[in-house]
Design a protein around this nucleic acid. Structure first.
Lengths: 167, 167
DNA sequence: TGAAAATAATTAGGAAGCTAACTATAATCT
DNA sequence: AGATTATAGTTAGCTTCCTAATTATTTTCA
């Protein structure tokens, strides 16, 4: 997306502002910086997970399964909770099953449905990854004061309410 | 990643906190909410661009080219500015060239290098997409007060300085 | 009851991202 | 000058995401 270091200089900004008078430079920079910082943090998380032979999408499925009392869910529920399509969830579960971190069986109650279950190997993988993950998130977020943290949440909620502006 | 609507309830949080005592719930929620809102906004931008037969990666290459005085750059410079690998940039340029939005030629000065140039069709595509893009970004970001906008940038810079916590 | 509609999961095909390996060219350094 | 090293770009093979189409099963309702 955008490297923070090379935000456009005044000369370039003028060129864009002349051609596109609706541009609000400060707000565009806020928007792009927001996306860029989030992308960088997401990539950082991926690097950490990768060192444990996991990736963000698959890791999140394990976390969602651990949330369940019986460590069990269905692909469509997981897809909805993870915010991805059911087709994507099929692929994530395929990979996890290949690595034996989850098991898949047909639901006895509804033969259309699968039941995905966290295996003991999957739980062990979480136990390997989560403590250090939590320590690093704490380290990251304590860069913010409590007030900044609260403000950030408030701002995120406001932006979330505007999520349909692009539709 | 995480649906804002189904953040874990107290019962689940206790389960995780018991097993992983280093978890700092509030900060984890801040972190995950940040990634989720950014993902949703990025997907919104993609939906908008998609309606104009563009996608975020390709669109950004066009924007970077328009920033140049001669509408011209090389794949590796573009990759660095866009924050993607050179291999990814090759693919983005392939797609743009197929749609005749950019042209590619070998540099006469250094035969290893390519020169990528925004075509008039590419500029026309930007002129089609950018005004409405700027209006929507303005609409999105004016949900924040000026103070909130300033605070957001300050927070983003702080988080950016911590980008190496996952290494 | 039996046809139509809805639901769950998958497959197919494509985009955008990555690393690692490869080719071609240019620069450097004995 | 010639061998080595560095640089620019691409290719190959992988993951993660998407939409649209397909298959199997269940539900609905005429």
């Amino acid at each position: 997306m955008l490297e923070l270091k090379d935000l456009p200089d005044a000369h370039i900004l003028k060129k864009f502002a002349d051609r596109y008078p609706d541009a609000d430079i400060d707000r565009v920079i806020q928007f792009l910086t927001f996306l860029r910082v989030a992308t960088d943090l997401s990539n950082g998380l991926d690097r950490y997970l990768n060192a444990h032979a996991l990736l963000q999408g698959r890791w999140w499925v394990l976390v969602l399964l651990m949330r369940e009392d019986d460590a069990c869910s269905s692909p469509s529920k997981l897809a909805e909770k993870a915010g991805v399509s059911r087709a994507t969830m099929t692929g994530l579960i395929d990979g996890l099953q290949r690595d034996k971190l989850v098991s898949r069986m047909v639901s006895p109650k509804d033969r259309r449905q699968s039941l995905v279950k966290l295996t003991s190997k999957g739980q062990a993988k979480l136990d390997e990854v989560m403590p250090e993950y939590y320590r690093r998130v704490r380290q990251l977020m304590t860069a913010l004061t409590d007030e900044e943290g609260d403000m950030l949440m408030q701002v995120l909620m406001k932006l979330n309410q505007q999520a349909q502006v692009f539709d």
